[in-house]
């Protein structure tokens, strides 16, 4: 920890102040024209610092909603949730997290560099620091040299990498990723999964990752949260015994397949009534 001396204070703080994200009896009901929709009910979950947590489940199970509650983009209707020990709103105002959406959502009139610079401009970083950080995070996602390109000049995978760089550009300890690779093909996805693991190891952030791919969830996570729909709830929380260092080949090992099997069983159990 000598290299990141200024960070140790915050690390200690996080360790002493308990889990990064803690939900108790969390529920969210949307009032729609067709009556109430229970997007989330009775969610109890604790996410520790440095965890890589995947949320997996069929569509409508509330995994994205839960991520949006953490991000203060939706307001829970029951229960409590804290992010870094404070309310999601306070955490958002303190810029505690970076959010990667399903679509890259790059602003088309900004170059890749300017897109990554956007949060830095908003948060008031100095010009010199903006340039330094943009160069650094574009390097992290292997997009160095693409700074002056416009989004349409990049492939879908590269655009999504740029959007990850944008979320990494400022000092948020939490990275929320909502099916970031859902729209990409298998090959690009494998590559990006490896990259995400590498970034996670390098930046030591807490990552919440929404997916509906079982291999993706098992490959990436230290903790897998299995969810089921109608009403959206958590059916199983699996602590992964896999080591932090994970080559792609780990997906053929018996341990990996065992966890994948348990996830599949969890999904099936949650789903049994409407199959």
């Amino acid at each position: 920890m000598t290299a990141a001396a200024p960070k140790t204070d915050r690390d200690d703080l996080a360790r002493t102040s308990g889990p990064v994200i803690e939900a108790q009896g969390l529920g969210l009901t949307f009032q729609t024209a067709d009556g109430p929709v229970h997007a989330l009910t009775g969610v109890d979950l604790s996410i520790g610092k440095g965890d890589f947590v995947s949320f997996i489940g069929p569509s409508g199970c509330g995994k994205t909603t839960f991520l949006r509650v953490i991000a203060d983009l939706e307001q829970p209707t029951e229960g409590t949730i804290t992010v870094n020990g404070v309310s999601p709103r306070e955490a958002r105002l303190a810029r505690a997290y970076g959010y990667v959406f399903q679509a890259a959502g790059l602003y088309p009139w900004r170059t890749i560099g300017a897109n990554v610079r956007l949060p830095l401009e908003i948060m008031g970083y100095s010009k010199a620091e903006q340039a330094e950080r943009v160069a650094r995070v574009l390097g992290l996602v292997e997009l160095a040299g693409f700074e002056k390109k416009f989004p349409w000049q990049l492939s879908g995978g590269m655009q999504q990498r740029a959007s990850i760089a944008r979320a990494l550009a400022f000092d948020a300890d939490i990275l929320l990723m909502d099916e970031p690779f859902g729209a990409l093909d298998e090959i690009v996805r494998d590559h990006l999964n490896e990259e995400v693991l590498r970034l996670w190891a390098k930046t030591r952030k807490t990552i919440c990752f929404v997916t509906h791919s079982i291999p993706e969830a098992v490959y990436l996570s230290t903790k897998i949260v299995v969810m089921s729909p109608r009403p959206g709830r958590v059916t199983d929380v699996i602590e992964s015994p896999l080591p932090r260092e994970r080559p792609l080949e780990i997906r053929e090992t018996p341990e990996f397949l065992e966890i994948a099997h348990r996830v599949r069983e969890g999904l099936r159990a949650g789903h049994s009534y409407d199959v």
Binding site: Y107, W109, M123
Partner: peptide
């Protein structure tokens, strides 16, 4: 999505205007 992104940055209304709404309106 573009507006949510601004919310996650806790951008002010002025920042949302100049960095998102105005360029989108061109």
């Amino acid at each position: 999505l573009q507006l949510d992104l601004m919310t996650t940055y806790s951008a002010s209304r002025a920042q949302i205007f100049w960095k998102l709404r105005f360029p989108s309106a061109m």
